[in-house]
Structure formats: structure tokens, C-alpha cells
Design a binder for these strands. Structure first.
Lengths: 154, 154
DNA sequence: TGTGAAATGACCGCACT
DNA sequence: AGTGCGGTCATTTCACA
């Protein structure tokens, strides 16, 4: 849980974040060059951004297909019992194939992004989602991904 | 464009990818310890995975709210003229606020993930999307994000 | 907060297996 | 493909401004 204070980043912070979004393995020396600050100073700022929860971590960007998860789907989810206590996200988190879970305004309660090996596995995962979450599902298969996870750097 | 060969990764490759997804800034020495291989060997394997397009890059995971983009939305998109040449993704890529673009099966042609500073800015971005892409839009506002971008590590 | 110096430790090419 | 070595460069801590 990140602390709430929030968005008072100065220009250097923004530059640091942008650079690390573009290349998460950037060395602190290169990062320093890019933002015009010595190594130790950027290092300090990065640690502060991490503590503040602005930088939540670093990951490798992997090609889901190459990883053996060629089938992705967007799954809209509606609880059977709207009055029941809503711990749906926690229950869905136990299904490994659910990569993202957004709580949304509109007819449905949640939208999920799901990745699977095969159509057969997608079918199983949808069944798991329905039983684990006590929800109805509406599934839209992703045919291709023109782009994904771009980060704008304002 | 990644080469097509695809998913013939051995167990070591999978372990390497999993470790780098979990921590994209892992040093090669630590990575080596985790997968039980010397530094130079993992280094070699990482470079091969990068060349094969399995590892597409590394990024910092940032809190969109802390970055000043607290409003996210899922936008479904339908071209006005289904017969027109479909370069919609390229045209939408020019709108910086569009983070992801998926081509989908179903009533709509594309689903987008959009992040903006404010509701007013979302309104503008939707207008840009409609004119830039010659499309109709249906927008679902994201209220909160229980989780996002999880990667399973099989 | 920003800075420099200095010790530890990582990176990465190369020669060998 | 995997390994070890070693020169070079990055990381990290600390005392000071």
C-alpha cells in the first residue's frame, strides 16, 4: 500500500522516472548523465521515489507469445449476488492466469486481462473465474496486440 | 518485429525470465545464484533471450496515480467505415495517452487502455481518438486497480 | 539535498573446455 | 553451451557542504 501524499514530483523526479521507464536497467551513472546530476544524487532520488511508492519496482518486458501464452482475452465480470461482500479481486488473484484486474464503472463490476496457453486452457480458466469469484463472465478474445504497456513520459 | 520460431525455452530460460520479471534490475551474479549457474552463463542466456525477442526490454513499474495520471479508462473502438484500410493502430499510437491497443474478436474492433490527468483531459483524448482513428468509442471508466500487470511464472 | 572519494562488487570480453 | 579469469566500470556508503 503506497502512502497517499502523492504527486509532488519535481522535474528531476519526472526525468528520472521517464528514463527508468524507458530502460529499467539503466545504470545510475548513465541515469545521472541523462538528468544532469552526479551518480550519488540520482541514486538518492531513486531510493526516495521507491520509498514514496512512485517507483513500484522493475520488470522485464516479455513477449507473452514467446513465453508460451499466446492466447489473451479481456473478461468482463458480474457478481451473481451484488449484495455479497466484495472480495472478488482477492479471490480472482488466486487464478494465476489473471494478469490484471480493474474495478470499473458500468454494467459490469470488473474487467480482467487473462493469458493462457491454449483455447482449452482459457475455457478452464473461465470456469475457475466463475466459481472462484461467484461471477458471470463475458469474454472478448484478443486477436493481436498492436501495442501494449506504453508509458507516456510527460 | 520478433522472429516467429517461438516457444522452445528450456527450464533455465524460464527460470531466468521469471527472475527478471520479478526483479528487472537483478544483477547477473544474483541471477546466476537463483538459477544455479555461473555469471557468464546467465549473461549469455539473457543476451540470447533478448535477441530472440523473448525479453523485449526492461521498465520501471510506476504508480500511475503518483505520476499524475489518476484517471484510467477502457475504450472500445469501432471504425466508421469497416471497408477502409485498417491502419487504426498506427493512427492511435500517435495519441500519447493510449497505453495499450488490442485487436479483438467481437462487436468492436479494438480495445484501448487510456490514462489521463483529469476527466476533462479524458474527454479531449476521446475526441482525438475518434478523429484520429475515424472510429466510434465506448468508454468504461476504471474506478480502481486491485492488481495489474502480474506475470505468472510457470 | 547535493557532492566527491574510495572500497566493494558487478559487468563483459576472451581463451579454454 | 558452459566456465574462469581479469581489466574496467558501476554501486554504495560516508563524511562534508
Amino acid at each position: 500500500m503506497p502512502s497517499l501524499p502523492g504527486p509532488d514530483l519535481d522535474d528531476v523526479d519526472r526525468a528520472v522516472v521517464a528514463a527508468l521507464v524507458a530502460d529499467g536497467r539503466l545504470s545510475y551513472t548513465d541515469l545521472g548523465k541523462q538528468v544532469g546530476l552526479p551518480t550519488s544524487t540520482v541514486h538518492q532520488r531513486v531510493r526516495r521515489l521507491e520509498q514514496r511508492g512512485v517507483l513500484r519496482g522493475y520488470t522485464a518486458v516479455v513477449d507473452a507469445e514467446a513465453l508460451g501464452l499466446p492466447l489473451s482475452a479481456i473478461v468482463s465480470v458480474t457478481p451473481f449476488d451484488p449484495a455479497a461482500p466484495d472480495d472478488v479481486p482477492e479471490r480472482l488473484a488466486r487464478v494465476a492466469e489473471v494478469e490484471s484486474c480493474w474495478s470499473v464503472a458500468g454494467e459490469e463490476s470488473y474487467v480482467l486481462l487473462v493469458r493462457t496457453e491454449t483455447p482449452g486452457r482459457l475455457e478452464e480458466v473461465l470456469a475457475e473465474i466463475r466459481t472462484a469469484g461467484s461471477v458471470a463472465t463475458r469474454t472478448t478474445v484478443i486477436l493481436s496486440t498492436p501495442f501494449e504497456g506504453r508509458r507516456r513520459t510527460p
